[in-house]
Write a protein that binds this DNA or RNA. Structure first.
Length: 440
RNA sequence: GUGGGCGUAGCUCAGUUGGCAGAGCGCCAGGUUGUGGUCCUGGAUGUCGAGGGUUCAAAUCCCUUCGUCCACCCCA
């Protein structure tokens, strides 16, 4: 097939099987979030350009899909609107617009497509669904714990158990830089390099740190402490010398204690080396890793002043983002089986019988089943039964002149091949009585 | 944005030194005119991603372009 009929790169068509799998997953998320008392929020697919630009820096601005001005201004080539880039900026706008009308704290979830003018790759799209869970207005660690627990439960609800939550804190990272004597101006660069410890060897990271201008002995000490088998103990001990660092450790421990009843200890761990690249986090940070998926399958943290930076009120905030597209990749085989399109397939064995066939299908629907009549051009019964079978129907209702003469319908069970004559008026009840026997 | 791989039937892919466009699966028809799945027989697949060049001759070699995949970067 010519490639011009593929959807634009980085976008996808979802035919029935995949669509249903996705809808199932979104439904699981909605129900888990609702069970925690989070409420839904839906905002427009596009926002005013000035609402979106300049929020995350120039690099992010380049990834915003802009919408040209229309009408007489179109020739100007300027844009005044843009497709949303994430769910957080719209959240800030909503907080600014409806502030006092929103509950406090405001616990909301948002599931919907976002767009990025990015280069697509594996697990990376230009149009993808983002699923965010946030709490505005609570500075409490309880809020972080609730978000984290809900995220964990959502993953479990989706059938995922083989994942790990890497937990750290901004204060821990600040403390590390302090106790190891990293010059303040090198801080963010050093953290970016340390984040690569899960991909690069300790030596490579040490070299990269030196390349950033960090004195060799400091780089060495830092990498050694982070990668030792007893790294966590070493870091904990070292941070005792830092007020901010110790505060970070205390908060991480508090968070671990709060979620201990819901998240098994094997699935969550204090991970001092984990650094979230984004600079707006102000407290605990976390990332979910799963085997077989590039990057993370979710991440979040506390971001206390971001909402104000994005144009909203200056409220405490914490939240998490479920990497649903990547989670769906892990679910590839499981939920995709599909259960067919019909429960009841009705033959049409002649133009003069079609109206009765329609009525039979209607009776099937009234019995709570999915029912359809044969729309093809073949009058052959064999073709029609094959059609019924191809559509996954459990029953084929055979209704020809012989049946009409006796006022009965031949009900063929396509699983067993057994057939039974049923009075036409009782077909609905007959099917309803047997529909519960075996789940679809 | 940098480097590399790959674009052939609906799908997964073969295709030798340039020499008639192939297989499996799926699809259609028949065997069986009122009985699907299994089986047997037969049939159709097509802009060889697109454009240009070399050649008697190009899926094959060269150039360009588009798409796609992998690594780096960045993210979800």
């Amino acid at each position: 097939m010519p490639t011009q009929f593929d959807p634009p790169s980085g976008t996808r068509d979802f035919l029935a099987a995949e669509y249903e799998k996705r809808e199932w997953a979104f439904g699981v998320l909605r129900s888990v979030f609702a069970s925690y008392g989070f409420e839904p929020l839906q905002t427009p697919a596009f926002e005013r350009l000035d609402v979106l630009l300049g929020k995350y820096g120039e690099d992010a601005d380049k990834l915003v899909f802009k919408i040209l001005r229309r009408g007489e201004h179109e020739a100007s080539g300027e844009a005044d609107l843009a497709l949303r880039y994430d769910m957080t900026v719209p959240l800030a706008r909503v907080a600014a617009a409806y502030g006092s009308q929103l509950p406090t704290p405001y616990k909301r979830y948002a599931i919907g497509p976002v767009w990025r003018a990015d280069r697509p790759g594996r697990g990376r799209f230009r149009e993808f669904v983002q699923c965010d869970l946030d709490i505005l207005g609570s500075p409490s660690t309880l809020a972080d714990a609730e978000v984290l627990a809900a995220h964990h439960d959502a993953m479990i609800g989706l059938g995922l158990t083989d994942f790990t939550i890497l937990l750290n804190s901004r204060q821990v990272l600040s403390g590390l830089l302090e106790v190891f004597g990293v010059p303040p101006q090198l801080g963010s660069g050093v953290l970016i390099s340390l984040d690569k410890l899960d991909k690069l060897s300790p030596d490579e990271v040490t070299a990269e740190l030196a390349g950033r201008g960090l004195p060799g002995t400091i780089a060495d000490d830092l990498v050694t402490a982070m990668t030792a088998t007893d790294a966590e103990d070493r870091i904990r001990a070292a941070l005792k010398d830092s007020e901010v660092g110790q505060a970070g450790v205390d908060e991480v421990d508090r968070l671990l204690a709060l979620v201990a009843g819901q998240i098994p200890a094997t699935r969550i761990a204090f991970t001092p080396r984990m650094v979230r690249g984004l600079s707006y986090y102000t407290g605990p940070i976390w990332e979910l890793a799963a085997a077989g998926v590039p990057g993370s399958v979710g991440s979040g943290g506390r971001y206390d002043h971001l909402i104000a930076q994005l144009g909203g009120p200056d409220v405490a905030a914490t939240g998490t983002s479920i990497g649903i597209e990547r989670v769906l990749m892990l679910l590839a085989g499981d939920q995709a089986a599909g259960r067919g399109r019909l429960d009841v397939a009705v033959t049409v064995l002649g133009d003069d019988l079609a109206a009765d066939s329609f009525a039979l299908a209607s009776a099937g629907r009234a019995a709570g089943l999915r029912a359809g009549v044969y729309l093809g051009g073949s009058g052959k019964l064999g073709k029609q039964i094959k059609w019924a079978s191809d559509n996954g129907a459990r029953w084929c209702l055979i209704y020809g002149h012989a049946e009409r003469a006796t006022g009965e319908v031949t009900v063929r069970d396509l699983t067993s091949g057994e057939q039974q004559q049923v009075p036409a008026g009782e077909v609905g009840g007959y099917l309803a009585a047997r529909a519960g026997d075996r789940s679809a």
